[in-house]
């Protein structure tokens, strides 16, 4: 660890401030609590909100897992993991079950979480009604008075234009029967996992300087219409690497001819499946070679 930084990069008084904010956020599930967001050594949009949460929570006993779109080996995940290796001397893992803190961009791991784990989300826009109601004063009033009819206008527009609720990520939810909340841009496939999850779920928005939380075992309900109920994505295909049919699949290009196939978005889950089948794990580059060689 470098001698120039306090443990976990943030100074202790900042951590105290963020911990107080977290406590308030847990006390009011789904409510966006403002906090004094700090400048982090990376640009907004790279997960500065989530990083501040993780930096506040992390201790030498913790094991950190960082994922970006479900994968441990993508740019955002790699750079954040390296950041915490450097500033917090963090133990890191790619195994979901081994992690105590999981920082995520855009996915919830497929492996069910436990009470001992904290899931930290990176949030770009915490306000679900922002695209319909640009005024912060107005959206705050709407939250205070629980006036959420306008959110269904967005879903109405989806059905009117596409014949179905086309919103497929950042799908709005009602937390604990009260606050309308953005789950950060996770696919709606993951929305049911937030409901009654044993793990603490924390959401950090760095640019907007807001933290919200879903405490363990909290009711999370996705908005819908009576005649257009909430549905998650489904695939006819199964994962080309591990063959599983129950995980969220990414469509990937496998050769220079533009041929495509589907693989698990959660790399750890994919590896676990291969292990169960007694097969060796395959990284994506090797997989690509294997596929294009086969043709």
């Amino acid at each position: 660890m470098s001698g120039t930084y306090n443990y976990g990069y943030l100074d202790e008084s900042t951590k105290r401030m963020i911990r107080r904010t977290i406590l308030k956020a847990i006390a009011i599930p789904g409510y966006q609590v403002p906090f004094g967001g700090r400048e982090m050594p990376m640009p907004y949009g790279w997960g500065t909100g989530g990083i501040q949460l993780t930096a506040t929570l992390i201790s030498p006993e913790d094991t950190l897992k960082v994922i970006d779109q479900g994968a441990d080996d993508t740019t955002n995940a790699v750079s954040i993991r390296q950041f915490f290796c450097k500033v917090a001397n963090a133990k890191t893992t790619e195994v979901t079950a081994d992690a105590t803190i999981i920082q995520t961009r855009h996915r919830i791991p497929e492996t069910p979480l436990t009470e001992d784990q904290i899931l930290v989300y990176q949030v770009p826009i915490p306000e679900p009604m922002r695209f319909i109601e640009p005024s912060e004063v107005e959206t705050k009033t709407m939250h205070a008075l629980e006036e959420y009819g306008v959110m269904r206008v967005k879903l109405y527009e989806d059905i009117a234009r596409f014949g179905q609720i086309a919103t497929s990520y950042d799908y709005p939810v009602i937390v604990n029967d009260r606050y309308l909340t953005n789950p950060s841009p996770i696919p709606k496939f993951d929305n049911p996992k937030m409901h009654m999850n044993p793990a603490l779920q924390l959401f950090g928005a760095g640019r907007e300087k807001r933290i919200h939380a879903i405490p363990p075992y909290t009711k999370v309900e996705s908005l819908d219409f009576d005649d257009h109920p909430f549905e998650i994505q489904q695939w006819d295909e199964s994962c080309a690497i591990c063959g599983c049919q129950d995980s969220f699949l990414d469509e990937v290009v496998i050769d220079e001819e533009g041929n495509r196939t589907f693989i698990c978005s959660d790399t750890d889950y994919c590896r676990l499946n291969l292990e169960k089948q007694g097969k060796e794990s395959v990284d994506f580059v090797a997989f690509q070679k294997q596929q294009s060689g086969a043709e």
Binding site: E147, G149, V150, R152, Y156, F225, D226, D227, H228
Partner: peptide
Amino acid sequence: GERLMAIGERHY
């Protein structure tokens, strides 16, 4: 439809 949804209409 906005006013209808605001007063609790839930059927598209």
